[in-house]
Design a binder for these strands. Structure first.
Length: 863
DNA sequence: AGCACGCCGACT
DNA sequence: GTCGGCGTGCTC
């Protein structure tokens, strides 16, 4: 999209405006007349007539005379102004970049940035006219199907939505409805949009104080003692109070207040009440803590970056328990003091209530706001508009908060930078909050601090100046600061300072990690999923009345296949990835119906061997034991033990996390048994023991990032142990103790591990050295997707662009929610990104109507 | 996304 | 001859 599309000058009341309409398929701007009495600014959200209905739109450009003259058709007028002052120029630039990079239509991208439902237009609701005489005339097939569906829903007063009808009946809906409408059999009404609205409350404001003079001479004042009481109560409240609160406080009534208002002593004002979420729990106040030398040095660097009006990235590599949060807090304090705001991005707010609480405790509730998808629509809407005021504040939020509209942004912090939940995969665009944050730091000329105990390969690569050599010195802060000579802009973008916090607060040691070779257990006749070492450790933990965590990597059905005797893992012969086990289900024309192993990169398939190819043992099988099984077996071994299971089954509703963790923290259980969720920012000082049932499920994943992710997960899990006064202990069970990931975890040699990892990726041109985009196709019809995938691949090959096409291949979990999924992988160098087809182009290349297409630029996994 | 228009086959 | 299916294209 050309830049000239957008102009952000505040013009004097123009007569026409060009808008981007909320209608798939219309990417060009449409021109509308601005009616008298409506002042439209660029960036405003509007409602405009389009065809027969009204749609949301964004004002982007005031056309000049030529542009107006160029359009000869009818020009309609804007229907209404929905919201004003939402989009600034820089902000718009960020959205444009996101849309372009992730190859997604602009309007679709705008919608992920703005609070939800803001452009909703309401919907038509249809019901049977109760006055229509009973005998139903003969109807066409379409009309009859609509009628029958309506008859099923006669109990709903408002009728059923057009959208629902369309969903149930498909194409005949329109003609059927028209027919019924003409016969006068149905009633149609427009349901007002469920758009979030500002909430207003009445406030009582003191205009004239009941001063001493009046108190002395009550005759003259015309005030009753009760009225004076009320006014005094209001004065105590600082001269202002919300009506509902004040009525309770002063034990008075509305009529009494109205009397006072009539006499001019008080005013009853309608004013907006902001619904701001995440502030229900009480937190005590907190003061800045003494920093360790490492922390102080890191803080110094961040503060220096804050001073410089240029984009900078700082990678804060701090081991678990090294006090990264304290560094963030002290970096933010001067930002707030200077009247600017800070944005703090966290992976999942539900899992890190402690972090939010610390910000609230340090800066106070009025300065800290949260923004995430668990807020209600009203709360999101209000939080959003509150940010636009420009008040200095800290916004703590998840992925979508990267689009928080803070006008005076001074610093962006991304905590747990490596975490996968920063990447969006559900609706397009599949953006990565880290990437968007990097652009934002450039556009705003402000620093971006990325913190992690296990930095991503991407960030380590950048911090290393895009070289594959070691980063810095052991245990020392080093940096790859840009040189004094101005670098070309592309290089400035990528320059990253590396800051390390290699020691835990109070110099507590990292917990020692013991690796148990499960093959030896097998040889010793122990067929249980628990090694003798692990069992002993749990027994010891119980005896000492300490607490522990058991980590299970449980993933649905498709797992890896390995030999229980020699540890051999089945690998693809064309790619360096392990093969996934597939159940013998015939799902598509080209898939075999026997148990087989498949590579998800190249679609190479082979039958599942009955014996191990290296040692001929028959004990070659697929693995995977879930939390429930582990919980059950632990209960058998230790009848006394008190356990809490912590996985997506037990934490379905939103407060469950906090509840279970609070129970555990209160010592109501000895052992926490859970999945991935345990890795995220969980800080429970009493935990001394951490056990990993099987690291193999993490290691042998057929994905190029499997090693990196396994390393990060294991280090994060291990980091839960020994944060308190007592020393920690970590036990990792595996069938492949010699695996480089296990070696690296055991020795905490992240640097060396990542170096090898990066050089392997370099050899195959995988990210972060090369780039990838994954095209997803899905349909309820298995044949249709497969055909569409092949067609699309053919069409893309004909493009003859600078990319490598892999596939099409069925997705590893072929069927999800009754949809069959295929995918095409594109590998390319970053220069080629802008030549990638956009989502709209991809869709136009697929004719199967049932097939949905999506594109994921920089996919986190290619499974 | 909706709703036009317009082009073909199965019927009064 | 006409009704009604659905493919194609436009919406300021």
């Amino acid at each position: 999209m050309p830049d000239e599309f957008v102009e952000f000058q505040a013009d004097c009341t123009p007569a026409f405006v060009q808008v981007l309409v909320d209608c798939p398929g219309i990417e060009e701007l449409l021109t509308y007349r601005i009616p008298e009495g409506i002042a439209v600014q660029i960036g405003d959200i509007l409602s405009v007539p389009l065809g027969t209905r009204h749609v949301g739109a964004i004002a982007l450009h005031f056309p000049n005379q030529n542009q107006i003259a160029a359009f000869t058709g009818e020009v309609k007028a804007i229907a209404s102004l929905i919201s004003t002052g939402m989009l600034s120029a820089k902000y718009w630039e960020l959205v444009l970049r996101t849309a372009d990079y992730y190859r997604t239509a602009l309007m679709q991208t705008v919608k992920v940035a703005l609070p939800p439902k803001i452009m909703d237009q309401g919907c038509y609701r249809i019901k049977i006219d109760p006055e229509y005489p009973n005998p139903v005339p003969s109807l066409s097939k379409a009309a009859r199907s609509v009628w029958e569906l309506l008859e099923k829903h006669t109990q709903s007063k408002k009728g059923i939505s057009r959208r629902y009808l369309q969903q149930q009946l498909g194409k005949p809906t329109s003609s059927g409805l028209r027919e019924l409408q003409q016969l006068g059999m149905i009633l149609t009404q427009l349901d007002p949009p469920q758009r979030p609205q500002p909430k207003f409350v009445d406030a009582i404001v003191l205009l004239q104080a009941p001063d001493a003079q009046f108190l002395d001479a009550q005759v003259e004042s015309k005030l009753t003692p009760r009225q004076i009481e009320i006014l005094t109560a209001l004065q105590r409240e600082g001269g202002e109070s919300l009506k509902t609160e004040f009525l309770k406080l002063a034990k008075t009534t509305i009529s009494a207040l109205q009397n006072l208002a009539a006499k001019g002593y008080i005013a009853i004002d309608r004013r907006e009440y902001l619904r701001l979420g995440g502030k229900s729990h009480f937190v005590s106040t907190d003061r800045p803590k003494q920093l360790t030398p490492d922390q102080a040095l890191a803080l110094e660097r961040i503060l220096a970056a804050v001073q410089a009006p240029k984009p900078q990235q700082l990678l804060l590599h701090g081991v678990t328990g090294s006090g990264k949060t304290e560094v963030y807090l002290q970096a933010i304090a001067p930002i707030l003091a200077s009247g600017r705001s800070a944005l703090v991005l966290v992976p999942e707010i539900g899992l890190t209530p402690q972090l939010t609480d610390r910000f609230r405790a340090r800066f106070g509730d009025t300065k800290v706001n949260v923004y995430h998808s668990q807020l209600s629509d009203g709360e999101r809407f209000d939080t959003w508009r509150q940010m636009l005021t420009g008040d200095a504040q800290v916004v703590v939020g998840t992925r979508s908060a990267v689009f928080a509209p803070l006008p005076k942004l001074g610093l962006i912090i991304m905590d747990e930078e490596h975490d996968g939940s920063f990447k969006q995969d559900q609706p397009q665009p599949c953006y990565h909050a880290r990437t968007v944050a990097q652009w934002r730091s450039q556009l705003e000329q402000i620093p971006l601090v990325l913190g992690s105990a296990t930095p991503s390969a991407e960030m380590l690569y950048l911090a290393n100046g895009k070289k594959l050599i070691a980063i810095g010195e052991d245990s020392e802060i080093s940096s790859c600061e840009p040189t004094v000579i101005p670098l070309p802009s592309a290089e400035i973008e990528n320059s990253v300072q590396y800051l390390a916090l290699p020691h835990r607060i109070g110099n507590k040691p990292m917990p020692p990690i013991a690796v148990v070779d499960m093959r030896e257990e097998l040889q010793a006749g122990n067929w249980s999923i628990f090694s003798r070492t692990l069992r002993a450790a749990i027994a010891r933990m119980l005896e000492q009345k300490k607490q522990g965590i058991l980590f299970i990597h449980r993933r649905g059905h498709s797992t890896f296949v390995s030999c229980r005797s020699c540890g051999y893992v089945m690998k693809c012969r064309h790619c360096d990835v392990s093969l996934a086990y597939h159940n013998p289900i015939a799902v598509s024309a080209s898939t075999p119906t026997i148990s087989h192993l498949r590579c998800h990169y190249c679609n190479y398939t082979e039958a599942k061997p009955s014996r191990c190819p290296t040692c001929s043992s028959p004990y070659i099988k697929h693995f995977g034991s879930g939390t429930q099984k582990v919980e059950q077996e632990i209960a058998e071994l230790f009848p006394e033990i008190r356990m809490i299971r912590f996985d997506s089954d037990t934490t379905r509703n939103k407060d469950q996390h906090r509840l279970l963790l609070d129970q555990f923290r209160a010592g109501e259980a000895d052992l926490l048994v859970g999945t991935q969720m345990l890795t995220k920012g969980l800080d429970i000082p009493q935990v001394t023991f951490v056990g990993v049932i099987s690291a193999d499920g993490l290691l042998n994943f057929s994905d190029f990032r499997a090693g990196e992710r396994a390393f990060q997960t294991l280090i994060q899990v291990a980091g839960r142990a020994g944060r308190g006064d007592d020393a920690g202990e970590v036990i990792i069970q595996t069938y492949t103790p010699e695996h480089p990931v296990i070696e690296a975890v055991r020795n905490y040699t992240s640097k060396e591990f990542m170096q090898v990892e990066l050089s392997q990726r370099a050899a195959l041109n995988y990210p972060p050295l090369g780039q990838m985009a994954l095209i997803h196709l899905s349909s309820p019809d298995p044949i249709a997707v497969e055909t569409a995938a092949n067609q699309l691949a053919q069409a893309l090959l004909a493009f003859e662009m600078d990319w490598e096409l892999l596939g099409p291949a069925p997705a590893s979990i072929l069927k999800v929610a009754n949809r069959f999924r295929w995918q095409i992988l594109l590998k390319f160098q970053s220069e080629a990104l802008s030549s990638l087809p956009t989502l709209d182009i991809l869709r136009s290349l697929v004719d199967q109507k049932s097939v949905r297409v999506a594109i994921d630029v920089d996919p986190l996994t290619i499974l």
